[in-house]
């Protein structure tokens, strides 16, 4: 099963390519994309329902709180997607986003910070499991997309990095 960000990547690639139609099938799930040439619009059509999704999204009110904030981020994200040097650091799990190792310490990074591949950029915590997230690219943080203490979803973009 493809992840949301992988599907996004695919859309981007199909969008930039000369192909009009793209179908991908694996382990019972199928994704079909068609381009409307005039409108430059991409349609993602999940043909078959998938029984198992990797996203552990509980139908909770907390998630709905998050969702209110999400469209805002999506907009920002679409605006800059054209630039291929931009890398998104995404959350590998559901949890609380922390900008710093403890409340009284400085943030790991902020807008303008230079990062290398193994720089720690934040912590995502769930149930006292702490996950230090690394930048995975060399570059500069150009935007912090979430607030300290915010609940983040699996695959949610946390930072935009301009890679070198």
């Amino acid at each position: 099963m493809l992840k949301v960000q992988e599907i996004r990547e695919l859309i981007k690639l199909v969008d930039q390519s000369s192909i009009d139609e793209f179908t991908y099938e694996s382990e019972g799930s199928k994704i079909k994309m068609k381009k409307k040439v005039q409108g430059q619009q991409v349609v993602v059509e999940p043909v078959q329902a998938v029984s198992e999704t990797p996203k552990p999204a509980p139908p909770s009110p907390t998630t709905s709180v998050i969702k209110k904030e999400e469209p805002k981020q999506e907009v920002k994200h679409e605006e800059v997607q054209e630039d291929t040097n931009l890398h998104k650091i995404t959350s590998p799990m559901v949890g609380t986003f922390y900008q710093s190792p403890s409340p009284d310490k400085d943030a790991y990074v902020k807008t303008g910070s230079k990062v290398s591949k193994d720089s720690i950029v934040c912590i995502v915590e769930a149930m006292k499991l702490f996950n230090e997230i690394e930048a995975e690219v060399n570059g500069e943080i150009i935007e912090v997309l979430v607030k300290d203490g915010q609940l983040v979803e699996y695959g949610q973009p946390l930072f935009l990095v301009k890679s070198e």
Binding site: P58, S60, G95, E125, M127
Partner: peptide, 21 residues
């Protein structure tokens, strides 16, 4: 807790919140 271990809290207004941290 949920099937994932997430804490469920029911607020006074009846709303159920899921707590991760």
């Amino acid at each position: 807790i949920t099937e994932d271990g997430v804490l469920k809290i029911q607020q006074e207004d009846g709303e159920i919140r899921h707590v991760y941290s």
